[in-house]
């Protein structure tokens, strides 16, 4: 059986890649996808520890994380659509009205 630590290593790798995507990409939709990737990496940790500790609480938490991710994706995509109507771009660098 794969050990819990191998699950944790995979989860850490996915989380780091998601953070990389959030920081370096210019396309707003890809940034949102990277956030989903990070949330999913956290879910892997929850499931791994739920199995190791033989406790169902981790799985319950994972369900709530998935719920929050769904709501966040819906609202985020609506904001992106409205921003595209306003500025005709989904580029993170070009939306800087609050920047001084």
């Amino acid at each position: 059986m794969p050990s819990t630590s191998s699950y944790l290593i995979l989860s850490g790798a996915l989380f780091s890649i998601g953070l990389l995507g959030v920081i370096i990409r210019r396309n707003m939709i890809t940034v949102l996808m990277s956030i989903e990737l990070m949330l999913n990496a956290v879910n892997i940790n929850f499931i791994a520890f739920s199995h190791q500790l033989a406790s169902l609480e981790g799985q319950i938490f994972t369900i709530f994380v998935i719920t929050v991710a769904a709501g966040e994706a819906a609202v985020g995509l609506a904001i992106i659509i409205q921003l595209y109507r306003l500025k005709s771009t989904v580029n993170v660098d070009e939306v800087r009205e609050l920047n001084g």
Binding site: S3, T4, S5, S6, L8, I9, G12, A13, Q52
Partner: peptide, 10 residues
């Protein structure tokens, strides 16, 4: 993260 996991602990 890779060093924090320390393979074998879990």
């Amino acid at each position: 993260m890779i060093t924090l996991v320390r393979p074998g602990v879990y």
